[in-house]
Simulated assay, not measured.
Amino acid sequence: MIHSLRTELPPITLRRSDRERLGVLADAAAEKYPVTADFLASEVERATIVPDTHPLPEIVGMESNVTFRDDISGQEKHVTLVYPTSADVDAGRISVLTPIGAALIGLSAGQSITFETPSGEPRSLTVLWVGIRR
């Protein structure tokens, strides 16, 4: 199932504390994972920032449970977005320092994003559902 790929980036929203921590993470990972770190840094930079106390229902943040669709394959996945030290792919806990994790951060249900993997392959994801952050 191949859908047309969108090139316009959707608006995203982050809490102030997530922006600060994700910015530091992207900087620290720049040498080891340059493409993904740059993508994450770009996402953090373009995000609308809100206070930590601002409710963000249905917006993907750290520790959010997310169901998304791979728009190229049509496959749906349910994951929890975490920092790299908590990642466990077998348990469905994906790192924000992966291409998919960096793409999901700040999106809301119904939004899609197209991005390029470190190998240069196009990917497109659509967020179907976002669970309440813990």
Rank of each mutant, 00 (worst) to 15 (best):
A91V: 01
E31P: 00
Q75G: 00
S86D: 14
Y33C: 02
D52T: 04
V82S: 03
T48K: 11
A109P: 02
L107S: 04
I49M: 04
F68S: 05
V96A: 08
G92T: 04
L25Q: 10
A47D: 06
P57E: 02
R93T: 00
P84W: 01
I59Q: 05
A103E: 04
D90G: 06
K77D: 13
V44D: 07
A41V: 02
L104E: 05
H78S: 15
F68D: 07
R21W: 03
S42H: 12
Q75H: 10
D88P: 01
D88C: 05
A102N: 03
R21N: 06
L56C: 08
T13F: 06
P57M: 01
P10K: 09
G61K: 12
I59N: 06
R15D: 00
V82C: 05
P55Q: 07
N65L: 13
G23I: 03
L97T: 02
G101R: 12
L22C: 07
Y33W: 11
E58Q: 14
P10T: 10
G92N: 09
P10N: 10
V89H: 09
A109D: 06
A47W: 01
A41N: 03
G92M: 11
H54T: 15
L40T: 04
R46S: 10
E45K: 14
T48P: 00
D90P: 00
D71Y: 01
D71C: 15
P10C: 12
L104K: 06
T80A: 12
T67F: 01
I49L: 11
E20S: 13
Q75M: 12
P57D: 06
R46P: 03
I94C: 07
A103Y: 08
S42C: 09
A37K: 03
L81Q: 04
Y83I: 00
K77F: 15
S73H: 04
S86C: 07
V66W: 11
K32D: 12
S64L: 06
I105A: 03
S42M: 08
I12S: 14
L97M: 14
I100Y: 08
T67M: 11
R15L: 15
D90L: 13
V44F: 08
S73N: 04
A103Q: 05
K77Q: 13
D71Q: 14
